[in-house]
């Protein structure tokens, strides 16, 4: 089948792989912090649980349902931050958000797979899907719990 290069740009193989087989998808026994995120307009939902020991993220898991981009981006994020310091994780969050704006590689270590999401930057309607997991992790690490949304609009017209 032909799907067009634009579509292949958005849905890179590594992204589809994470969507079909999400990593770190089993709940943690004793998370030290967690947060819920959602995009009500799209119906994207993620819940992120983190175990922090000292300054290190020793465990992370996510659950939820939503579009391939929100779920795959969250899956990739969990792989990236696992074993890193909370400070490195925050740098990764910033780098990801920067990447969604500039559509350029942030050139940081461990981002190779994640750079497959650069194509999302060309689809403004989908940036909020890709950002959901990262924003939710930010909230969890800030220890604020609560709920996150990357929807900028709060109403929808039909």
């Amino acid at each position: 089948m032909t799907t067009g290069s634009l579509l292949d740009d958005l849905y890179r193989e590594i992204l589809l792989d994470h969507y079909r087989q999400p990593r770190n998808h089993n709940p943690l026994d004793a998370p030290t912090c967690s947060a819920d995120g959602s995009n009500p307009l799209c119906g994207d939902q993620v819940r992120i649980e983190v175990s922090v020991a000292g300054d290190r993220i020793v465990g992370i898991s996510f659950s939820g349902r939503g579009c391939s981009i929100s779920q795959a981006s969250t899956s990739m994020m969990t792989e990236y931050v696992k074993g890193r310091s909370a400070e490195d994780a925050r740098k990764g969050i910033d780098a990801f958000q920067q990447m969604m704006v500039t559509a350029e590689s942030p050139g940081i270590e461990g981002f190779d797979d994640i750079e497959a999401l650069i194509g999302v930057a060309k689809f403004p309607a989908r940036v909020k899907c890709a950002s959901l997991g990262w924003k939710t992790l930010e909230q969890a690490l800030a220890g604020e719990g609560g709920a996150v949304t990357t929807d900028e609009r709060s109403v929808e017209h039909a």
Partner: peptide, 25 residues
């Protein structure tokens, strides 16, 4: 396939549909 992804693929075929909660949660 999430409705959002359905809508995205359809758009590359020129097909415009609506995805979401349609203001009827």
């Amino acid at each position: 396939v999430h409705p959002h992804d359905v809508g995205q693929v359809l758009d590359t075929k020129g097909v415009a549909i609506r995805t979401g909660h349609h203001c009827a949660q």
